[in-house]
Design a protein around this nucleic acid. Structure first.
Lengths: 220, 220
DNA sequence: CAAATAATCAATAAATCAATTGAATAAACC
DNA sequence: GGTTTATTCAATTGATTTATTGATTATTTG
């Protein structure tokens, strides 16, 4: 029995449908940081446990995430690095083409960006600066995420604890802060605080998601 | 008024939903070959005109395709090359992770592959072979698609006309046939015919879609 | 200007998806 | 073994998506 091309597209479309829900994308973005149990994912996404569980199983059926049992928890994780590339590409295409997307992105951090003296750094700029040893790199995500993998040479300074770590930071060198990605507010908060305290600071806007999606190495 | 992260994901999910339907993926795959008016797309996908039109507008709202009027026709095309990368990546992820996908892919061309003496060529292998001038490259898609862009150095030999072109093909060199991509049957048909007539032939399985998605050049 | 063509729009019914609720499992703890 | 904790399952309801139909809008042609 011949298999029709259409059957293949129908199967492929399962993957698309899995990506076709805002809550599931939020779950994937959280999982892009680190693996997590259902309860944590539900909390982070503002979903009920049961609902989060169902969305996660939807993602699992589509092959986007896998799960393992750890004691009484089910720990979910992205199936592999390509899922991250898929998310990043989706976002990139959306930003270019969806007018509304652009409008929202523009507004999300409008306040902060106004005060920002310099444009956020691109990945290429950051790589060059790191090679030259010209900047101090600051990972401002929570420590658990830092430990799950961070950019080479980055110091961890979670926003919540940043205030108490100021004395350890250089005032004569540019600081570059990064967090998860463009949807993440941590680096904005950190940059604002540091700027107020007189530090030279820029943000690596795209964050760890883009870095990993580009296939660049992380360290634990 | 602050914009929530969730709003962003909701907008992003529009893109996912646009990819979440087999007919729309079929339309996109056709458009990946060349731009086309609604009627042609409907015919190729087995959709009614009205239904095809609605799917195309869905794709347009998601920013995946654009349309221009040409006389009394509306000609649709992919918005840019990234859409192709997105499709290719989607397919790649699906093939790795969706068990059912693999099963279908395996069956789709099972008959042909059995008779195939050699594995299909990967892109890397093809590039090496082309650099060495070791093979004759054959684009077996319809001439209209060939003219819209083909691999450098490829001869056009549409499957339908292949029989009458056999005398022009070398018997002392390996021939590599390619068509649209993994879902496309042309290169299978061509390879079978050539093999029966005693030619040395392999297929570049991934086809022009992957080539373009990788950012490699085409010629008109 | 009327007729023909290509596509879109609008309304409907059927199918699918999503959130909620409460019950059911499965593992760990006492 | 019974209780607690983390998660999944199942059923329900409301919301979205899809295909179909027939009417409508642009554009070209006679």
């Amino acid at each position: 029995m011949p298999v029709s091309r259409q059957e293949l597209f129908d199967v492929l479309s399962q993957l698309g449908r899995a990506l076709g829900n805002g809550h599931r994308l939020a779950l994937l973005e959280h999982l892009a940081q680190k693996e997590a149990p259902v309860e944590e994912l539900a909390g982070a996404s503002g979903l009920s446990i049961a609902n989060a569980s169902q969305h996660l199983q939807h993602l699992r059926r589509a092959g986007l995430v896998t799960a393992r049992r750890d004691g009484r928890q089910m720990v979910y994780r992205l199936t592999d690095e390509r899922i991250l590339r898929l998310l990043t590409l989706l976002q990139e295409v959306a930003e270019t083409h969806l007018a509304e997307m652009e409008r929202l992105m523009g507004r999300l951090f409008a306040d902060d960006d106004a005060g920002e003296a310099l444009e956020p750094m691109t990945r290429a700029e950051l790589q060059r600066a790191l090679e030259e040893g010209a900047v101090t790199l600051l990972d401002v995500r929570p420590n658990a995420e830092y430990q799950a993998g961070h950019l080479p040479g980055a110091l961890n300074a979670p926003v919540a604890e940043l205030e108490s770590m100021l004395s350890a930071l250089p005032r004569d060198r540019e600081i570059v802060a990064y967090c998860r990605g463009v949807y993440c507010a941590f680096s904005h908060d950190a940059a604002r605080l540091l700027r107020e305290r007189g530090f030279q600071v820029r943000r690596y806007q795209a964050g760890i998601l883009e870095w990993r999606a580009a296939g660049l190495p992380l360290v634990d």
